[in-house]
Amino acid sequence: MSVSFAGELLAIGIAPQAKAPLELCESVEIIAGRGIVGDRYSAGKGAGQKGKIDDEQQVTLIAAEAIAAACEESGLPITHLITRRNLLVQGVPLNDLVSKTFRVGEVILRGLQPCDPCGYLEKQTFAHIKQALLKRGGLRTVVLQGGTIRVGDAVELVELPRS
């Protein structure tokens, strides 16, 4: 299946440790194989992490359109920071990017799996958020090429050279 889109990075959120609220940043440095500098998961301090950095914990994304639909259907006051996803994007079909490589600013990510909401998110926020975000909870990614990203950066599919 061919995916075509022209998206934009609307916001960046990081938390220095598990359970800490996400904080907005205008730009962040991202390290290949590790994640976002200053975020709990790149520091090995994420919920249930035990110091090891798994690929699927490096960078998470959620679409503004998914949040808007979840709010409209559920009546819940869901925001980007409440979802605990690192990057808020617009115009990006995240569910179609599993096993695809794409660029956010200077950084190249590979979509690994949907970031379905979990019981932990519901405990930290409010009842029924899991159901509201079901099948639209975002995307877990691994960082293939690091660099700096900034709010306003383009999000686009990339073709990697064949080896």
Rank of each mutant, 00 (worst) to 15 (best):
Val3Cys: 15
Ser4Cys: 15
Leu9Cys: 15
Ala11Pro: 07
Gly13Tyr: 07
Ile14His: 03
Ile14Lys: 04
Lys19Gln: 01
Pro21Lys: 13
Leu22Lys: 14
Glu23Gly: 05
Glu23Ile: 08
Val28Ile: 15
Glu29His: 06
Ile30Trp: 01
Ala32Val: 05
Gly38Glu: 04
Asp39Met: 14
Arg40Phe: 12
Arg40Gln: 13
Tyr41Arg: 09
Ser42His: 13
Ala43Leu: 13
Gly44Pro: 04
Lys45Gly: 00
Ala47Arg: 02
Gly48Val: 01
Gly48Ile: 00
Lys50Leu: 00
Lys50Val: 02
Gly51Val: 06
Asp55Ile: 00
Val59Glu: 02
Ala68Lys: 15
Ala69Trp: 07
Ala69Phe: 08
Ala69Leu: 09
Ala70Pro: 04
Ser74Phe: 12
Gly75Arg: 08
Leu76Gly: 08
Ile78Val: 13
Ile78Lys: 06
Thr83Ser: 13
Thr83Cys: 14
Asn86Tyr: 14
Asn86His: 15
Leu88Met: 12
Val89Arg: 02
Gly91Val: 08
Val92Pro: 00
Asn95Trp: 11
Asn95Ile: 13
Ser99Trp: 12
Ser99Cys: 12
Thr101Glu: 09
Phe102Arg: 07
Arg103Phe: 10
Arg103His: 09
Val104Ser: 07
Val104Cys: 12
Gly105Arg: 08
Gly105Tyr: 02
Leu112Cys: 10
Leu112Phe: 07
Cys115Glu: 02
